[in-house]
Design a protein around this nucleic acid. Structure first.
Lengths: 119, 119
DNA sequence: GCAAGATATCACTGTATGCTGATGGGGTGA
DNA sequence: TCACCCCATCAGCATACAGTGATATCTTGC
């Protein structure tokens, strides 16, 4: 049986993974792997609505996965730590071998991709 | 704007992270890092209900994150790939530095830990 | 000061998904 | 073959959470 401290540790780890476990958020983090971006650049890059991107950024910022820097009217975001990108890299490597299995996993809605905002 | 192929890639990656993004599933995977376990051993280790563990295993199995082996009445599970454990290790390393931020992230319900099954 | 642009916030809604309890199925030993 | 484990499956329920649209906040240039 798990100890309370173990439970808490697991919860935090799960939250970290969950932070990356949404297609929209992941697309944001993924875009930031190539370098810092402003919010509007991310809106452009991901095709998500501005409020949606901003909401996700709020979450990622609270979680210390990204860091914001105000520059005039613009706010530039970058990844807080190289290991955030490392997680994605490792995931890609793993998926190169087991992607089919993950793709066919029916527990999560397979149609759920990054949904571009109309307009 | 994202291409369709990029969208699909992101969706699969997100699903992988999401697989690890639930405290109950993560507790199962985490337990398996120390070696193969039967379902009943996982029920014992995590404190989750049998059906709950089995449901999560079904998902993890479909996603090729764990592998099942029948041995008599028992079914033994082990991680499909070392990189699954690597993801958790990297996450732990990262969290050693930014855990407070993740912990305080309010977008996800902070009270959501591994919920032991009564009885 | 004011208009315009960039970003953040908020309430609301629909839906995905985690948990449960009951049941089914398959293997095993007596 | 029959009782007993071990595990899988399924329907139902409750709820967390992603997306939207409207609005607020902040900055800059005029």
């Amino acid at each position: 049986m798990l100890l309370t401290s173990e439970r808490a540790g697991l919860a935090v780890k799960a939250k970290l993974f969950r932070g990356l476990g949404d297609p929209s958020r992941l697309s944001i983090v993924d875009a930031l792997r190539r370098g810092p971006l402003t919010v509007s650049a991310m809106v452009e890059a991901t095709g998500l609505s501005q409020s949606n991107v901003s909401n996700h950024l709020s979450c990622l910022r609270d979680c210390s996965l990204v860091v914001a820097e105000q520059a005039g009217r613009f706010v530039t975001y970058h990844l807080s730590d190289d290991r955030v990108g490392d997680l994605i890299t490792t995931a890609e490597s793993l998926l190169a071998d087991v992607a089919r299995g993950v793709y066919e996993c029916t527990r999560y809605d397979i149609s759920r991709t990054v949904k571009p905002h109309r307009r």
